[in-house]
Design a protein around this nucleic acid. Structure first.
Lengths: 328, 328
DNA sequence: GTGAAAGCGCTAACAG
DNA sequence: CTGTTAGCGCTTTCAC
């Protein structure tokens, strides 16, 4: 079923059919009516692929996500998809687990002529960003920045969030700390670790040990277990994200027999749903996920409409959630 | 940058360029080399949209998912995306929360000319399936069937899984039951509820009360709290999924002061990651998610290659996981 | 307001 | 093996 078939049945030209299906184009009510009747009869739907080819706009945005062991990603994906849907844009989903796959993934993105990209994960250097500019595809990075290069970014305010978190912990009498960081390949992990250590240092707490996991529940559990093998329990564990914090709590309680928060404070970051489950009730910094998703989509679509708008960085404040996983 | 530009630089015809970029087509090594050199120089990538238009194949599969309050969905989405990626097929993601949006969503799917559809959610009647057949788009349903109509389906064996679960609970001395079901609009919820009740009945346990939630953590919590307001605690709660079971456990422990499993057995279904967190250690039936995702993609892609292959139903056995949330 | 005509960038016969 | 040619289904000037 093509627009020609509809045109024939409706007794109009093919271009009339095309016009009838594009909003805001000059067609008389009578013609439009004839076209719509014929279209319904033939069960005709315009072919989006052909439209993409001619308009040079795919109506699709690539969303890059990594494996779902970090529970913040599905929540973000969900919000971003909703935001894009409401603007009548479709999501082409890409997952990226290994750094090496990035080049291949980018190739796919070019060939698919997506209108834009939202990257929830992956490290982008200025060369990658330059390639996007070359291809004229706007990109928005989530919670990460490109060193020495302006880029569209929406970030939670790590500085402010972690300051509040650290202040709270210190005020609660915690003195001996352990930082449970995400992997050093992760921009987010590095930022959160460095900022946390800096704020601890401002309280005169230095030489804080760091253990490294991969943002997953299991790694939170394992890292803490490994640490406890040849160390005394610290007062508090500052985790790079909620998923690891939950793993750490489970290991503390069930593996090490420590009472949380009486004998051990544990904090997370993100504010995933599971963090608020009463079994954990995590002290954490909540990303304003809805607003951040909206900001990411707003920034992106503005650049899709008008490619000359310069890069923009938006930093949104997180909110400290005082759960019962930390003495405060 | 089009194939014509590359052809000009390489000193060959445009169709030679096209051939060079399609695997397994007859091009001499020399020509291919010239083409690739020119392509690299011009930073050329074939335009997938144009290819879709001419080949009538988009290389995209629509995946329909619902809101992520049920944690099995992100896990499934992740596995399915991996499976499709490995076959060089892209995922076009659609979310469906309200039943009323289905028609609109289907329209989108037609216009985008996807090669196939995997539906993790939504209720499809035989009319919907017929429309897919009309459009010649193969569909695979996940954990749901179409009444009175053959359709491609991959299901976990609810019958067998729930039999094992109920047998285990009864053997553990549990006699007074509560079933915490997902919503009656959900095919999966209905199937799990009815089968559970049937198996209880076989043990002579009838007139089992049912409370209805929406598969979310909060609804598990709320439903159980509401039930406890004007009833004694049952021996065991059989939940339609793990997320509700976790909510139920949290409410039992923190809201009602009940010891799990000593005073209350709670079971789930699905085998989501969080079910195995040591804080819950849920007795549940684990869907073989990897195999099911693979089966769904296998079934789908076989029909994409060859539309005449008849519908197929694959039922995979789940595995009972004996956690410590139920007396057994 | 409407129709004719020219492509968007590519693939796939077909003939050489 | 290579080049020529005819579209895929649509949007968009451009005359009328």
């Amino acid at each position: 079923m093509t627009s020609y078939d509809v045109a024939r049945v409706a007794g109009v030209s093919q271009s009339a059919v095309s016009r009838a299906f594009r909003p805001g184009l000059s067609v008389s009510a009578k013609t439009k009516d004839k076209v719509m009747k014929a279209a319904k009869k033939l069960n005709y739907k315009p072919n989006a692929i052909a439209r993409m080819l001619i308009t040079q706009r795919s109506g699709m945005v690539a969303v890059i996500i990594s494996s779902i062991s970090n529970l913040i990603y599905p929540e973000l994906l969900s919000r971003i998809t909703d935001q894009l849907s409401s603007r009548d844009v479709r999501v082409l989903l890409f997952t990226l687990d290994e750094k090496e796959q990035l080049a291949e993934l980018l190739d796919q993105i070019w060939t698919f002529q997506v209108d834009g990209v939202i990257a929830l994960t992956a490290h982008f250097d200025h060369e990658d960003i330059a390639r996007f500019e070359e291809h004229n595809i706007p990109v928005v990075l989530y919670n990460r920045q490109v060193p020495d290069h302006p880029a569209n970014t929406v970030c939670v305010d790590h500085e402010q969030g972690l300051k509040q978190l650290v202040d709270l912990l210190v005020a609660g009498g915690n003195r001996r700390f352990l930082v449970l960081s995400g992997p050093t390949e992760s921009d987010v992990a590095n930022e959160r670790r460095i900022i946390a250590l800096r704020h601890l240092s401002r309280h005169g707490i230095d030489e804080v040990p760091v253990a490294y996991g991969d943002f997953s529940y299991q790694s939170g559990k394992d890292c803490f277990a490994r640490w406890m093998k040849d160390h005394d329990a610290p007062d508090a564990v500052i985790c790079s994200n909620d998923t690891m914090a939950i793993g750490c709590i489970d290991e503390a309680r069930d593996g090490q027999g420590l009472k949380v928060p009486e004998e051990l404070s544990v904090t997370g970051f993100d504010g995933i749903h599971a963090a608020f489950w009463t079994g954990y009730d995590l002290t954490t910094v909540r990303q304003p996920v809805n607003q951040m998703a909206k900001a990411a989509v707003d920034i992106l679509m503005e650049r899709v409409e008008n490619p000359t708008v310069p890069p923009e960085k938006r930093v949104l404040a997180g909110s400290l959630f005082k759960g019962s996983s930390a003495r405060s």
